[in-house]
């Protein structure tokens, strides 16, 4: 699980239906992505904070949604590289 902030709460978790090795963890410090089933992680979406939950579109594996704790939704269409606020 290298690359995830230590001793921090994992609020949300989602996996790509197309490739289950691709997974996302939502944390207070941001959103983290692994492409090797959780062996290593890197932060994606600079500026995302207080991430409470994450979901991957089962039909479009690069389309990812996150919600902050207070309900602000962001969408990425490139696997987490860039994000658009939805409201």
């Amino acid at each position: 699980m290298g690359g995830l902030p230590a001793n921090r709460t994992a609020n949300g978790f989602a996996v790509s239906a197309a490739d289950p090795r691709v997974m996302y963890v939502a944390m207070r410090d941001g959103l983290f992505k692994s492409v090797n089933a959780g062996e290593t992680w890197r932060a994606v979406g600079s500026g995302l904070k207080d991430v409470a939950a994450v979901a991957v579109n089962p039909r479009k594996p690069d389309e990812v949604y996150v919600s902050t704790t207070d309900g602000v939704i962001f969408r990425s269409r490139d696997g987490g590289a860039t994000w658009q606020r939805q409201q």
């Binding site: 979901a55 991957v56 579109n57 089962p58 309900g71």
Partner: peptide, 21 residues
């Protein structure tokens, strides 16, 4: 912070998308 007071969303726990996306 009142961004979603109108929708009534408070303290989010989970997000999911149905099978058709």
């Amino acid at each position: 912070p009142s961004s979603f007071a109108a929708a009534g969303v408070e303290h989010v726990h989970a997000l999911a998308m149905e099978a058709e996306g």
